[in-house]
């Protein structure tokens, strides 16, 4: 029988048969792993895949919660884009009568605005996704990439409602065409691009909290460079500037979407290699953003 005092172990010195082992040796002997260590990239992808239901459920829950206090509830998902279109129609279609060189200017404008808004909101939400959800990050275990991806899905869901409205107003310009089927691949490519960007900026935003304040200015610059409200094909600028405007990822996705939906936009006005750019941007930014985010996986939560 031993006395009680024997039970007071000096801190972090192994008892029993393991006396004399250092903490690291002891951990190795019993197969303990470092807590909160960053998993390898393939393991990380597997973990993320196993959390896919959480990612979607979290996005849907956020979206549902967004309109839960409004009397019209989920109807706002459709009302918001509809009202946006109405505003543009009022200003540009009736008051200013702009877009004489661009047929179906209101549809042209709405496509630009909706596609740009998708990237804009995904980037903004992505930037704040870690910093604004520190409580969640500090309470539960999950691959942190769930958050930026989830916020991008929220924006995708909102865009899908906008697309329904958009198809409705495009019907005023032309009847459905075979090229409408291209909408799906374009949205997938833009989603991958947006997710990558949201992931990269989530890491930046988690470390440098001022990023969220700076982003609106960068995004506004980007909007004017993306031909949201004007037709890049119609403007006269130096060649280098034209090339830059043509390969701008958002401009690429907007061009493609206009080409897919509007009969008045023909393939000959599209910049050269536009599909290659669309795929390239999605792959490079999507993968790059994911790897960049994963590299700091163990650091999120310090705040």
């Amino acid at each position: 029988m031993s006395t009680v005092s024997e039970h007071i172990r000096p801190a972090a010195v192994a008892g029993g048969p393991d006396q004399g082992l250092s903490p690291a040796q002891l951990a190795a002997k019993y197969g303990l792993s470092v807590s909160g260590a960053r998993p390898s990239l393939p393991a990380y992808v597997r973990q993320l895949w196993s959390r896919r239901h959480f990612i979607v459920a979290y996005a849907t829950a956020r979206l549902t919660a967004m309109y839960t206090k409004a009397k019209l509830g989920q109807l706002w998902q459709v009302m918001t884009p509809l009202l946006n279109c109405a505003v543009y129609y009022l200003i540009f279609g009736i008051l200013l009568q702009t877009g004489k060189h661009t047929p179906h200017f209101v549809q042209f404008l709405c496509i630009g605005v909706f596609i740009f808004t998708f990237t804009q909101n995904a980037v903004m939400a992505g930037t704040r996704s870690i910093a604004d959800n520190l409580g969640l990050v500090r309470a539960l275990h999950f691959p942190r990439a769930c958050l930026p991806i989830s916020f991008t899905i929220i924006q995708l869901q909102q865009l899908l409602f906008s697309m329904i409205v958009l198809l409705g107003i495009v019907l005023f310009a032309n009847l459905p065409m075979a090229s409408w089927a291209l909408v799906l691949p374009i949205l997938i490519l833009q989603f991958v691009f947006n997710a990558g960007l949201a992931l990269a900026l989530a890491r930046v935003g988690a470390k440098v909290t001022d990023t969220a304040q700076l982003m609106p200015f960068i995004l506004r610059t980007w909007m004017y460079a993306s031909g949201v409200m004007f037709n890049i094909a119609n403007i006269h600028v130096p060649a280098w500037s034209k090339t830059l405007l043509d390969v701008n990822p958002i401009a690429v996705y907007i061009d493609l979407m206009r080409f897919a939906l509007l009969g008045s936009v023909h393939s000959d006005v599209l910049p050269p290699h536009v599909w290659a750019w669309a795929v390239g941007w999605a792959v490079v930014v999507g993968l790059g953003g994911f790897v960049y985010f994963w590299k700091a996986e163990e650091e999120y939560g310090r705040g």
Binding site: L32, G36, K69
Partner: peptide
């Protein structure tokens, strides 16, 4: 493993879990 260590190390068997899920729930 939810807060990164500044110095020193923590080794664990499996994944330790905090009993708490509050942060994930939404009041609405």
């Amino acid at each position: 493993g939810l807060l990164p260590a500044e110095r020193g190390s923590v080794f664990t068997h499996g994944q330790p879990s905090l009993l708490g899920v509050n942060a994930a729930l939404m009041n609405d």
